[in-house]
């Protein structure tokens, strides 16, 4: 009973703190943390759960360089989200480029978050960004990006020891997608239907698992262009 009271009190305290600050303040908090990372390289493992697409997990490397260079290097064919995991952060770098509007609060994985809607001031690919920010740590735990080119993408960030640099251990992209159809001329009908766990019909997820981060090692731009 005491524990429950303590949780309720801390929640109220957090919400009171949230109410007291503007959305831009939280965004700045996030940016300050991430600005410490000029570049990084890390190992990555990608898991797919896409309706109509059967991809086995792949491993590879991932590279980032501020402000917005991002590349995943793997062997063979992979499906990657159109947006980089740092797409929102790259956008938020220029505070004049968007308008941030507070839109309530929500508890994400037990963490009280404030919701900030981001609306670009000019016509960009992004139409609307919705960010779930952990105000106590200055981290975006979840974001929902609606773009012109790729529809709506939901990004869940899971942080580990490198939360101090806003570098997640795991990111899950959830994408609304129409069921994939192959033209008859090229399709094969394999007589089997194996039952495999699938996400909600029409919703696919791509999970990026990061490990072995190597930060601020002055990555060359070539890493992002070479074949």
């Amino acid at each position: 009973m005491r524990k429950l009271l303590a949780v309720i009190c801390s929640l109220f305290a957090a919400l009171f703190t949230i109410k007291a600050q503007t959305p831009q303040t939280y965004i700045s908090l996030v940016m300050n943390r991430f600005d410490k990372v000029k570049d990084y390289a890390a190992d990555i493992k990608i898991n797919f759960n896409l309706p109509g697409v059967n991809l086995t997990p792949v491993a590879g490397s991932v590279f980032y360089k501020a402000p917005d260079k991002f590349r995943v290097k793997t062997k063979g064919v992979v499906f990657l989200p159109k947006q980089s995991p740092h797409f929102a952060l790259s956008l938020l770098r220029d505070s004049t480029a968007y308008t941030a509007v507070s839109s309530g609060s929500e508890i994400i994985a037990g963490v009280p978050c404030i919701i900030v809607n981001v609306i670009p001031n000019a016509e960009t690919d992004l139409i609307l960004g919705k960010l779930w920010i952990d105000p106590s740590r200055g981290l975006i735990l979840k974001s929902q990006l609606t773009t012109r080119s790729g529809g709506t993408v939901l990004i869940d960030n899971y942080f580990g020891p490198l939360w101090t640099h806003a570098l997640p251990d795991r990111i899950v992209f959830t994408v609304d997608m129409a069921r994939f159809k192959v033209p008859k001329a090229l399709a094969v009908d394999i007589n089997t239907r194996t039952s495999k766990p699938q996400s909600t019909p029409g919703t696919g997820t791509i999970e990026l698992q990061f490990s072995n981060y190597r930060m601020n090692q002055h990555l060359s731009d070539k890493v992002f262009t070479e074949e």
């Binding site: 062997k75 064919v77 992979v78 080119s149 994408v175 997608m177 994939f180």
Partner: peptide, 16 residues
């Protein structure tokens, strides 16, 4: 053409 519906949502990386 075959993969256009997927390319709306994903970057397909690698030589298909």
């Amino acid at each position: 053409f075959v993969l256009q519906s997927l390319r709306q949502h994903f970057v397909i990386q690698g030589e298909i």
